[in-house]
Amino acid sequence: MTRVLLTGGSGFIAAHVLDILLKRGHSVVTTVRSQQKADKIKEAHPTYGKDKLDFAIVEDIAKEDAFEEAVKSDPPFEAVIHTASPFHFNVTDPIKDLINPAVIGTTGVLKSVKKHAPTVKKVVITSSFAAIVNPSKGNWPEHTYSEADWNPATLEDAHKDTTSAYRVSKTLAEKSAWDFVEKENPNFKVSTINPPMVYGEVVHYLNSLDALNTSNQRIRDAILGKWKEEIPPTGGFCWVDVRDVALAHVKAMELPAADQKRFFVTAGAYSNREMVEVIRKHFPEYQDKLPGPDVTSGGYPEEGSFKVDNSRSRTILGIEYIPFEKSIVDTVKSLKAVGA
C-alpha cells in the first residue's frame, strides 16, 4: 500500500486513476478545485473511509505555491501522480490560459514535494503525445514516433493558433519537469505518461455532454449528428483508451523499472471514419445521425501516416491495450448514460 497524492482528481483521466489506486489498495488524497467536486467523488466511493480517500482543495494550480499545503500529509505521502493541467481550446490568452497553468502547475508540484514531502520517492506526471509529435513534419509516413521524439516547439509557437498553444504547453511542462530533476537532484524519481487522443468511458458522476474531455467530444459530435455532412480530418491518427492511460500511471508509480522514463502510451492508429463505422455497426439507433456511405472524408491520408512504437509501455508497464472497437462501444454506452 502506497500513500498517494493525486492532483486534479475530477479530471477524465484522474477519475480512472483514482478507481485503480483504490482497487489496488492504495491510500489516496486527491486535489480538487471545490468542496462540491470533493463531495461528488466521495459519494461515488462510499465504501472508502477517510484513511483511504481524502481531499485537498487547490483552487488554482497556476499559482506558484498552489500545492504547498496539499503535499503535507499524516501519514506522509510516498508518491504523487500529477494529472492536473488544462486541456481545452477555449483560449483567449495562450500564455495565461494554457502555458502558465501547465508549466507552473508541474514545477510547483515538484518544488513543493521537494520542500515539504521528503518521504515521496516517485512522481508520475501526465504529459501528452503533443510533447512528442513534430507538427512541422505533417503526416510523416516514413517516421515511427517513440519516447525518443520531442516536439521542437518554442514559446513563440504558442501564438500561432490554439492547437499550437496546447502542444507548446504540454511540451514546456514536461521539459520543465525533466529540467527540475536534472538541476535539483531531488530524492524522488519521475516518470511521464504521454498519451495521444484518449477515448473511453466517462465517469458519470463528473460528466455531462457539455463537460466532456476534448477527445470524447468527437464521439459525442458524431452521435449527435454534427458529422452527417462531413467527417472532420482525424489529425493525430493515434489513440488510446483512458483505462489503459490510468493503469499506466499507476504501474509507473509502482514499478522501479519505470523510474526516470517517458512512456508513449498508445494503442495504435485510427481514423475518424473508422470511429463512425464502429458506431454504425453497434448502435443502429444513431443511423440517421451518422454520415451516409457517400461521405468519404475522415479517413487516412493517401500517402499514409506516421507509425508508433509503444513497446516500452508494453514491456515495462505490462500494458495490454484495449482494442479500438471495444473502446468506442464502451464510450458510446457511457455517453448514452449521460443523455446522448
Rank of each mutant, 00 (worst) to 15 (best):
F12C: 11
S27H: 12
S34V: 04
S34I: 07
Q35E: 15
K42I: 03
P46M: 00
G49H: 00
K52G: 00
I57V: 15
F67H: 08
E68T: 15
E68A: 15
S73E: 05
D74V: 07
P75Q: 02
P75K: 02
A79F: 12
V80T: 11
F87Y: 06
H88W: 00
D97V: 02
I99T: 05
L110S: 07
K111N: 15
T119C: 02
V120W: 04
V123T: 07
V123M: 03
V124P: 14
I125Q: 14
S128Q: 14
P135R: 10
G138D: 10
E142M: 02
A148G: 05
P152L: 01
L155R: 12
E156W: 07
H159K: 15
K160E: 13
R167S: 13
K170E: 14
T171I: 09
E182Y: 08
K183H: 07
K183Y: 05
F188D: 06
V203T: 15
Q217G: 13
A222C: 11
G225H: 09
G225F: 05
E230R: 12
E230F: 03
F237S: 08
C238L: 09
V242C: 11
R243T: 15
D244T: 14
A248W: 03
H249I: 07
A252D: 10
A252W: 13
L255A: 05
S271Y: 02
N272Q: 11
N272P: 05
M275R: 01
I279E: 04
P284H: 06
P293Y: 09
Y300I: 03
E303L: 15
Y321T: 12
V329C: 01
T331E: 14
A337Q: 12
